[in-house]
Every structure is written in C-alpha cells, then in structure tokens.
C-alpha cells in the first residue's frame, strides 16, 4: 500500500513537470500580467529603448498605447489583452523626431484581428509655436460604401506628442492632411497626405 502511494505521488510529479514543459514549449506562458510589463517586453525584444513613457492612453478595456520618447525617436507602442494576458501588438518601432521639421508623424493600421482592428496616427511636435494639430481623415464604411470625411484636433501639451486613435470596426481610413496650428489658429505647417 505504501509503495503504491509513493508511486502515485511520483506520477503526479511527472504530470506537473510535463505540464510545465508543455507550457514553456508551446509558448502559452507568453505575455505579461500587466500592460506595463507587456510594453517593456515589447521594447526589450525589439532592442529599442527603454523609452520614457510620456503618456499612457487607454483606448479601450483591452488596448493600451504607450506614447514615449527615447533619444532622437518617439513611438506609440501598443499592447492588447488576450488569452488572459497582455501582449505586444505593434507600434514599438521608434520614429525619428526630425528636429529640422515642424513636426514628425507616423501611423499604423490593423483592419482586423481579435481586437477588432485599430487605426493610429501619432507624432511629435518640434515647433514650439504649434499648439494644436489637426488631422483630416476620410472614413469609409466597408459594407455600405459610404464615406465620411472630417477632421480632428488635439492640443499639444508639454510632452509634445499627439495620438489620434480609432477602432476600425469595419471602416477603411485614409489620411487627408496633417496641420499644425499656432495660438491664433493660423496654419504653421501643413502636409497633404493624399
């Protein structure tokens, strides 16, 4: 009886060890329990940064964007929650601030995915006289082929960064223009994107 019990314990140990190896091998142990952890993991594995997070933008329950700067670059690293953990999901790459230009921008779009897709347009403002940025955008409903155009504005705060973000939800996005406005609302910088 005693021997068979010992055998049982050993077999349960084997089950546990096999299970841990299986988790490791399959990659199911990936991800982080915190959004911050996933962001750090993202930058570390991309060999960029660690950036200084200037703003954390909670897009929705499952998506967080970390606006950050690192030396002469800026980034909008995005992490998403899936399978009970936070995972890197794009935007980790640093974009040059290009100090000789009034502002620098980048964008990325994921039209599908477990998170329903997301469109981001983000940037870094070098010109201290630009206090507002305005993005012209056309959104096209994929199902009904109806397009709506509009523009969105954002005030530039001390961190000099901006981020326009949408859940795509079956829409296609095309950028029309990016403008930088001064205190009087006059256009100091304009770049056509179409």
């Amino acid at each position: 009886m005693k021997i068979s019990r010992l055998g049982g314990v050993l077999e349960w140990c084997a089950v546990l060890i096999l299970f841990i190896i299986l988790l490791w091998v399959s990659g199911l142990d990936r991800g982080s329990f915190t959004a911050q952890g996933a962001h750090e993991l993202s930058e570390r594995s991309y060999h960029y940064g660690p950036s200084k997070v200037v703003r954390k933008v909670q897009v929705d329950q499952d998506t967080v964007v970390f606006l950050g700067t690192y030396k002469q670059w800026f980034s909008a690293d995005t992490v998403t929650w899936s399978h009970f953990k936070w995972h890197p999901s794009g935007g980790v790459a640093g974009v040059p601030k290009n100090p000789e230009k009034p502002l620098a921008y980048s964008w990325d779009m994921k039209s599908t995915g477990s998170d329903g897709g997301m469109a981001k347009f983000y940037g870094y403002v070098n010109d201290p006289d630009i206090v507002t940025v305005e993005l012209g955008v056309v959104m096209e409903e994929r199902g009904s082929n109806t397009a709506t155009s509009g523009s969105e504005r954002q005030r530039i705060s001390d961190d000099r960064m901006f981020l326009f973000v949408w859940k795509t939800e079956g829409r296609d996005f095309s950028w029309q223009s990016i403008k930088g406005l001064d205190r009087e609302g006059k256009v100091r910088y304009e770049h056509k994107l179409q």
């Binding site: 068979s4 049982g8 077999e11 349960w12 084997a14 089950v15 096999l18 299970f19 190896i21 299986l22 091998v25 399959s26």
Partner: peptide, 19 residues
C-alpha cells in the same frame, strides 16, 4: 486509487504525446 491512477497516467500520456 484506480481512478486516480488512470487520470494521471492518461495525463502523462497526453502531455508526452503533445510534447
């Protein structure tokens, strides 16, 4: 005891096969 043995051996078999 037999049920426990069957479960753990089944688990060992399944995990080992996946590995």
């Amino acid at each position: 005891v037999t049920v426990g043995m069957m479960i753990r051996r089944l688990l060992i078999f399944v995990f080992a096969a996946l590995l």
